[in-house]
């Protein structure tokens, strides 16, 4: 198993001229689970979008590195090829674009040397769909088009399983999932964790952290990480909210 390190160094990000992230430092390694918590508007989702390379999120300072390689200004597809994956908080619908075609193209782009046959590929996808209790016909639907909140989240997890990233950022993966679905999703995350994938779990509540125990908990407030700790921090946040954490 190869080890991967995502380093975020003093990252500053503006959206439409307004500074949202004001110098964030984080290091996530293979096999680690980090939780990023914080009140609404702290900049949690901005961090996710910035890491994935959304052009509307302007990096005004700092660096993003994977295994020492500077990806601060890289295209989203270059980041994906370096092993980064974001499960979007609100995945967008793309009418008419079939999931099967999309997944297959993405896989071939990420692993050009594998030359996996179409049949083998779809068997792999099918297995993952079974694990997530998704109907096989799902694959012929268009990306997120007409999906319920829960279906969108499952599809994000399905993509993560199929595309095998090295570091995965999960932005509010638990929202929109009912208890049973959350269990399935958590089980998949644990499986991937066992395969040495590193996680950054972005969450407002700590519902999902009952199933996936983070080794590291970071609290983001007003664009800055104001606390680094462990499970005790998230437990205390659940009881007392964010008020006790001073900037």
């Amino acid at each position: 198993m190869t080890n991967t390190v995502l380093e975020i160094k003093n990252l500053k990000v503006s959206v439409e001229g307004k500074e949202i992230l004001k110098g964030v430092d984080l290091t996530i390694k293979s096999g680690e689970i980090h939780a990023l918590m914080g009140p609404n508007g702290a900049g949690k989702s901005t961090l996710g979008q910035t890491l994935v390379g959304h052009p509307n999120y302007k990096i005004t300072g700092g660096k993003i590195l994977i295994n020492g390689r500077d990806l601060t200004n890289a295209y989203p597809e270059e980041r994906a090829k370096a092993g980064l994956f974001l499960a979007f908080q609100s995945p967008i619908a793309i009418p008419g674009v079939k999931i099967s075609t999309f997944l297959r193209t993405a896989y071939n782009d990420l692993y050009p040397n594998e030359k996996m046959s179409l049949r083998d590929f779809f068997n792999m996808v099918k297995t993952a769909m079974n694990d997530l209790e998704m109907n096989e016909s799902f694959i012929s639907r268009a990306i997120n088009d007409g999906f319920s909140g829960g279906e969108r989240k499952r599809f994000e997890v399905l993509q993560m399983i199929v595309l095998k990233p090295k570091i995965a950022i999960l932005d509010e993966i638990d929202s929109g999932l009912d208890v049973d679905a959350l269990k399935l999703v958590s089980a998949e995350i644990k499986k991937l964790h066992d395969q040495n994938i590193g996680f950054l779990v972005i969450t407002h509540y700590q519902r999902i952290l009952k199933d996936i125990i983070p080794e590291f908990v970071h609290v983001l407030k007003d664009g800055k990480i104001v606390m680094n700790g462990n499970k005790e921090v998230s437990d205390k946040i659940e009881e007392e909210g964010y008020e006790w954490i001073k900037e």
Binding site: P55, E77, I94, V97, F102, A106, A142
Partner: peptide
């Protein structure tokens, strides 16, 4: 951005969107 974040190039993503529009 969504499609490119999965590894697709801009060309691939935009042609898929166009083809999807005509689906």
């Amino acid at each position: 951005t969504y499609m490119r974040s999965r590894g697709l190039s801009e060309d691939e993503a935009s042609s898929m969107i166009v083809l999807g529009f005509m689906d």
